[in-house]
């Protein structure tokens, strides 16, 4: 990507992330703050380290993107942080949730659906594309194993991953999470093409 393309991609990711965080704030009734935000180009093999280590236990909410082009969205949480978000969503005192039953998984899945859709809505409306999220999959596993789901798919067509990542927290409850968007090369190209098509 050249400088203008990077700037355009950064602007889209910024819009998408803001929309996702605003809607998360509304959903959990907390003023969610983004504590770090970044765009990176890394070898696909290194994506398993994105959460800080491949062998830490994590809860992931995974969505695929389809429509004008394909991509991947993953929300990742330390399990205790995920339980904290479930407590907020279900209007429970902090520390109530200690495992994911059907209703807890459903609440986290819907959180992923709303954040992922919000992100995609901002990109789609800025570019005139249609970007549809799949239903969410809520999984508990090692962080590396969760991220390998994405790596396995994009490694078929490309060596590098363009990762957009945001870390955020709910200050009232001292809980945080990570939001990753990894477009395929094709999605990135389709998005960048709208810049000149207009």
């Amino acid at each position: 990507m050249n400088d203008q393309e990077i700037a355009f991609w950064a602007e889209l990711v910024n819009k998408g992330t803001n929309n996702a965080m605003n809607n998360l704030s509304q959903m959990v009734g907390q003023d969610i703050q983004v504590t770090s935000f970044g765009l990176r180009q890394i070898p696909v093999a290194e994506t398993s380290q994105l959460m800080g280590g491949a062998d830490v236990e994590a809860i992931g909410i995974y969505l695929t993107v389809s429509g004008s082009a394909d991509g991947h969205i993953m929300l990742m949480y330390d399990p205790r942080m995920a339980y904290g978000f479930v407590d907020l969503l279900m209007g429970q005192p902090e520390g109530t949730t200690e495992a994911l039953g059907e209703m807890e998984s459903s609440a986290l899945g819907e959180l992923g659906n709303i954040m992922g859709s919000s992100f995609l809505n901002a990109l789609a409306d800025a570019t005139g594309l249609t970007l549809m999220p799949s239903p969410p999959h809520v999984m508990t596993d090692m962080a590396g194993a969760l991220l390998d789901i994405i790596a396995a798919d994009i490694l078929q067509t490309q060596d590098d991953a363009f990762v957009a990542e945001a870390t955020y927290q709910a200050p009232g409850r001292n809980i945080s999470g990570m939001f990753f968007v990894i477009p395929t090369q094709n999605l990135l190209q389709v998005l960048l093409d709208t810049r000149t098509a207009a």
């Binding site: 809505n121 249609t130 999220p133």
Partner: peptide, 9 residues
């Protein structure tokens, strides 16, 4: 009633 609020949708 959906999170998919894109104009095309």
């Amino acid at each position: 009633v959906t999170a998919m609020g894109q104009q095309s949708m």
